[in-house]
Computed example of a mutant assay.
Amino acid sequence: MDRRTLLIGAVGAGAAMLVGCSSDDDSSSLPTSDPTTSRSPLPGAVDLTVASTIATGLNVPWGIAFLPNGDALVSQRDDATIVRIATDGSVTTLGAVPGVAPRGEAGLLGIALDPDDPAVLFAFVSTASDDRVVRFDLDGDQLGDPTPILTGIPVGSRHHGGRLLFDDEGTLFVATGDAGNGETAQDKDALGGKILRITRDGKAAPDNPFDNRTWSYGHRNIEGLAFDADGRLWATEFGEKKADELNLIERGGNYGWPKVEGRGDEFIQPKVTWKTDDCSPAGLAITQSTAFLGALQGRSVFAVPLDGESAGEPREFFAGEYGRIRNVFVAPDDSLWVTTSNTDGRNQPEKDDDRILRVTL
């Protein structure tokens, strides 16, 4: 397969912790945690080390879903394909997803396996007319035709959200962006600027707060969703000019966009904020009482210690070493898979980009 090569050897890179982010301009600042939380380091601080490179030559790897045997399915945003990375290192293309219209930040985005049937895959895709959630049947290395289960999510060249996450009960959470129209985020009946909670057939899940698909609202653009060990839902959110956010998501909560960015007294407060030039938090993974964020502008991984509903001071790793970092996933062996995003048109890719790194804690 063109330029998709598994590298067995370890990458000679240790964890680097710097103050502030490496961004596209000269501005930098320390991230700020919620003033109601502890300002001192929380117990169980982690260190990160790049142990090896899983794969290279990928095209904007966006979503990862691990199969029961340890193989990984990876969605590629701009060429709208899904590849399978086996435990022995082989990489196979399952197929292209029909109807996807990549442009700007649009394309084939998040994926999630049905927790009760790993032969069923869900994906968030952008078409010419909308963003939507579709379902596939998997047959070995064959990708079936997509069946739409939720259509009509607003689409534009930016702010798609796109993350999919199942809970333990088989309910699907869907992060959507405002598609550049902030007012839709405050409309509880609109699909944009939300975290949606739906059934496998795309209907509103039981016990949703507004008797529709909306779980939380007032979001600009969420690309990261993760549960902590106690089942609390956390999300990363892109700001516009003031503040990127790490949020603890509450049922029916209003997170303020576009009325407020960052902290606002009448809305739910973020647990951590960064200046927008310093972070741009995309993917999110939680393990060992720590939230790990991929930072696109920051070109790094942030590790935020968690203690219940509190978040401590972020620590930064790998600043500037691998370019833009989009996603972080917890692998079956408890390592982290970290994806670069240097082929997305906003950075000069190196010859091995994009790549997936295996990071140990």
Rank of each mutant, 00 (worst) to 15 (best):
G224H: 08
G224K: 01
G224Q: 09
G224R: 02
L225Q: 04
L225S: 05
L225D: 04
L225A: 04
L225G: 03
L225M: 13
A226R: 01
A226Q: 03
A226F: 05
A226G: 03
F227K: 02
F227Q: 03
F227T: 06
D228H: 01
D228V: 01
D228K: 00
D228R: 00
D228G: 02
A229N: 14
A229M: 04
A229T: 12
A229D: 15
A229F: 05
A229Q: 13
A229C: 08
D230W: 04
D230H: 10
D230N: 14
D230E: 15
D230K: 11
D230L: 06
G231K: 03
G231A: 09
G231Y: 04
G231H: 07
G231S: 07
G231Q: 14
G231V: 08
G231R: 04
R232Q: 02
R232L: 00
R232A: 00
R232G: 00
R232E: 00
L233H: 01
L233C: 03
L233Y: 02
L233S: 02
L233Q: 02
W234N: 00
W234E: 01
W234P: 01
W234Y: 03
W234A: 01
W234R: 00
W234H: 01
A235C: 12
A235P: 14
T236A: 09
T236K: 04
T236S: 15
T236M: 09
T236V: 08
T236C: 11
T236E: 07
T236N: 12
E237L: 10
E237I: 11
E237N: 12
F238S: 08
F238H: 15
F238M: 13
F238Y: 14
F238I: 12
F238R: 04
F238P: 07
G239T: 10
G239R: 08
G239Y: 07
E240T: 11
E240R: 15
E240M: 13
E240G: 07
E240K: 14
K241H: 07
K241D: 13
K241S: 13
K241F: 08
K241Q: 14
K242C: 02
K242G: 03
K242M: 14
K242L: 10
A243F: 04
A243W: 02
A243Q: 13
A243D: 15
A243N: 12
A243R: 02
A243L: 10
D244V: 07
D244C: 11
D244E: 09
D244R: 06
E245V: 12
E245D: 15
E245H: 07
E245L: 09
E245M: 07
E245T: 08
L246N: 00
L246C: 03
L246S: 00
L246R: 01
L246Y: 02
N247Q: 08
N247G: 05
N247D: 14
N247H: 06
N247L: 07
N247E: 05
N247Y: 04
L248H: 11
L248E: 02
L248W: 06
I249C: 05
I249V: 14
I249Y: 04
I249P: 06
I249Q: 03
I249K: 05
E250P: 04
E250W: 09
E250K: 11
E250D: 13
E250G: 07
R251I: 05
R251W: 06
R251Q: 14
R251D: 08
R251F: 06
R251P: 03
G252W: 15
G252I: 11
G252S: 11
G253A: 12
G253F: 10
G253M: 12
G253I: 10
G253T: 13
G253Y: 09
G253C: 10
